[in-house]
Design a protein around this nucleic acid. Structure first.
Length: 190
DNA sequence: CGTAAGATGAAG
DNA sequence: TTCATCTTACGG
């Protein structure tokens, strides 16, 4: 099976595993950084753990935009995380990008993170945002070549599903997707 | 208005 | 296990 030219973002639980293996790229003045997506989570409109659950607000509006819109949120007083909106416009759902396998701009990412080990560079939703220097300015914008965009990578041979990390509601749903055995995940799974 | 809790990470 | 440190949502 070969990668298609764009991932299926029609529905979060489909998009989340479909995004695994895709390369996420970010271009800044400092340089290009990129990595293969190795861990994602799906969030749905009627999902109490989702930022979209209580309807559109100031910060979460991009989740209700058309598929492929970038949603960057701030949390815990110091961290940013990045999502891609999925589903039709008006439907609040998306996929949280939780970990990357570093590919390009590794030196730049190491400097931004103050961290040498590749396994710790992008092994968490806020880590990869820091490594790639993704900012809230991108929230609400579409994926765009030369800014933040996706390119085909590889097709994972095995994907594991687990409960999502860091939530207190809907913990029974298996909406976290990880490439089996990948050592760049936030919490690797066999 | 005041306040609590949050899709986290790093240090102790 | 604790704490940093800010935004938003919700209660009074």
């Amino acid at each position: 099976m070969t990668p298609t030219s764009s991932p299926d973002l029609s529905n979060a639980p489909i998009a989340a595993p479909a995004l695994l293996g895709w390369k996420l790229l970010h271009q800044t003045e400092a340089g290009l950084t990129s990595g293969y997506i190795v861990e994602t989570e799906a969030y749905l409109p009627d999902d109490p753990a989702s930022h979209a659950f209580r309807g559109p607000g100031k910060a979460n509006a991009p989740l209700f935009a058309e598929a492929g819109t970038i949603y960057v949120y701030f949390t815990y007083g110091k961290h940013y995380c990045v999502n891609l909106a999925t589903g039709p416009a008006g439907n609040g759902q998306g996929v949280l990008i939780r970990a990357l396998e570093p590919v390009e701009g590794i030196g730049l990412m190491q400097r931004r993170r103050g961290q040498e080990r590749l396994e710790q560079l992008c092994s968490g939703p806020a880590k990869l945002v820091q490594a790639m220097a993704i900012t809230k300015d991108l929230s609400g914008q579409p994926l765009a070549h030369g800014q933040l965009w996706l390119e085909p990578g590889f097709v994972p041979d095995a994907i594991r599903r687990t409960p999502r990390i860091g939530i207190s509601q809907a913990t029974d749903k298996l909406w976290r997707f990880v490439i089996a055995g990948n050592r760049f995940a936030s919490k690797p799974v066999a």
